[in-house]
Computed example of a mutant assay.
Amino acid sequence: MTRVFFASELEGVATWWRIERRDGITLGFTSHDRDMMFDGVLHRAAPGVLPSAIRKTSALDGDSAEMQGPLSHDSIAASDLAQGRFDGARVRIGAVDWETLERIQLYAGSIGTVSEEAGGFSADLLSAKEQLAADPVPRTSPTCRASFCGPGCTLSAARFTSEAAVSAVDQDRNAVTFAGIDPQLHTFGSIRWLDGPQIGLTMEVVAVEGDELLLDTPLDSGTVPGMRAILRQGCDHTLATCHARFANAANFRGEPFLPGNDLLARYPSAQ
């Protein structure tokens, strides 16, 4: 819209912000005292949760913003923050005229560090400029740098993804067993929950022991047999596995035969 905000001394303007979590949940909030609906999202009144000052510059360093508020809104629970449901979520902040719903976006970024203090939370917001700080030049490594079934790997994710139900849970070992799968194929893989208290969360498989998948994230006590999940097989990122199991050595993103730094420090030995 072409609306110019704060052009007059008195305007009915409120702040709005939108959080798009990685599990597909979108939450909208506004500093107004009533809920507002626009862009297909219901922005709930949350006067206690306010974004702080937003700094935007033309320099290459990242713009800064912060969001603070009490853990009182049903959509932002302490348990969700602790489980990482908001980690890496996309955030948009702007201003809206609460009478005409004319609006403008002032900031776009993602959630970085989330901390909790005295019944409240504080989230550091990272702007899109943060991507400029990443080093685009890959470093050499003996293992493949590409994500399994991701860019560079070229393998089809659908080919190595399946849905299964939990047949057993071991809370003490933080392990689950799924019916109808080959557990050995899921070493270093991942599971995304479709049911239960951890619905939408993704966990990594750190090891396989027998039929059990050992996970990197603590299981909720409410995880019981029968719950469904989407399982992605894993890869140990070695050239041998890439060639023998996937026949994908042509797309291997690593240097397994490059001499290491220790070659310069080796002593000659008599043959």
Rank of each mutant, 00 (worst) to 15 (best):
T2V: 12
H32R: 03
E20D: 13
R3Y: 13
T26H: 11
E20T: 15
D35I: 11
F29A: 02
T30N: 02
F6P: 06
R21V: 09
I19C: 12
W17N: 00
R22M: 10
T2C: 03
G12V: 03
W17D: 01
V4I: 14
H32W: 12
R22A: 13
E20W: 09
D35S: 09
V13C: 11
M37K: 11
M1A: 15
M1Q: 15
W16R: 04
A7T: 11
E9P: 10
G12I: 06
T30R: 10
R18G: 02
F5C: 01
T30K: 08
S31D: 04
A14N: 07
R3G: 01
S31E: 04
V4S: 08
I25D: 09
D23M: 04
E11K: 12
T30Y: 10
D35A: 14
M36I: 05
L27W: 09
W16T: 09
E20L: 05
R18E: 04
T30S: 10
F6C: 08
W17C: 00
W16N: 03
F6T: 11
V13P: 01
H32L: 02
L27Y: 06
A14T: 12
M36E: 06
M36P: 00
A7L: 11
S8E: 14
R22P: 00
R21T: 09
R34G: 02
I19D: 02
R18A: 01
V13K: 05
R18P: 00
R21W: 03
A7S: 06
A7V: 07
T30F: 06
